[in-house]
Simulated scan of single mutants.
Amino acid sequence: TPGEAFEVTDGMKNAFDRDGFLLVRGLYSFAEIERLEKCLKLGHVTKHAFDLPDGDTMNSRMVIWNHPGVDYTGLFGRCRRWLTPLKKLLGGEVYHYHTKVNMKEPHTGGSFQWHQDYGYWYKNGILFPDLLSVMVAIHKCDRGNGCLKVLRGSHKFGRIDHVRIGGQNGADPERLKECQKVLEEVFVELEPGDGIFFHCNVLHSSEQNHSDRKRWVIIPCYNRMDNDPYVDHHHARATKLHKV
């Protein structure tokens, strides 16, 4: 049922360990997503957005924050509905590392290069790849408007070196070619409220949005409490999470 709590079964945990991701339909109800979009449209959060050039004439916009507040975006980051499953998927208590909203506008939304999140989170002083992200669709995401793509099982490659491509961090192109030869590319098509949990070493990307439709997603990211970075950096250190 959309918007209801769910339990990670052993089969789901095995699938996550095998594939590096877990797709959950109806993680949030349509009414909850409408409320989130209404919150974002007020502009208090999105006024802090910045452009991400894709190196090919188009830009996506992103806004990012470290500590969830008490508005509706903060409730998303602190929601018990997925924090309990996160503990089982990552094997321990988690804290909120940061949340971002990626906004691809019609006809102008840029692509995201193939990358691993740990490819650059590693440089923030995080020793183990015990992090994951939960991407929830605010609008319908499909091939037409630049949905997420993942390489199934690519978290098993371990961390790959990353380089600057356009205004982004991308996986080493030569290494990436070889990875794409041996693993399946999956288009993650989502309805509003659907979510995908994915490991920080999963290779993922998305295409430009040439459609006349918005493609917005919210992506809270989490780290295990016992994996606190050994240096201060621009994202959150281990901080107790007040669940709602």
Rank of each mutant, 00 (worst) to 15 (best):
R78C: 10
C200M: 01
C200A: 11
F76H: 09
R215M: 01
G11F: 12
S133T: 15
P229N: 09
R159Q: 10
R224T: 05
M58W: 06
A171I: 04
H235N: 08
Y95E: 04
R81L: 01
H234N: 10
F30Y: 15
S111L: 09
E37M: 09
E178H: 13
Y72W: 12
V231Q: 12
R78D: 02
G146K: 05
R224E: 01
H67V: 04
Y95V: 02
R35V: 11
I33D: 07
Q113H: 04
V94K: 01
V70Q: 09
E32Q: 15
Y222M: 03
E32R: 06
H107M: 07
H107P: 00
V217S: 14
G193I: 03
N124Q: 15
E174A: 14
V94R: 05
C221K: 12
K87D: 13
L23Y: 15
E4W: 05
L75D: 10
G167I: 02
G55F: 03
D232G: 05
H44F: 14
N124I: 08
I138G: 03
L83W: 04
S211N: 00
H233S: 12
D161Y: 01
L75T: 08
H115K: 08
F21Y: 15
E185N: 07
K88T: 11
E207W: 09
H234F: 11
K38H: 14
T1F: 08
G69P: 02
F112S: 12
D226S: 08
C39L: 09
C79K: 03
F198A: 10
L132R: 07
R175N: 05
G167S: 03
P53E: 11
D226F: 11
V70M: 06
Y230N: 05
T1N: 11
M103L: 08
E4Y: 08
E105P: 01
F187I: 02
K88Q: 07
I165L: 14
C147R: 10
R159T: 12
I160W: 07
E93P: 01
H210S: 03
T9V: 12
K104H: 07
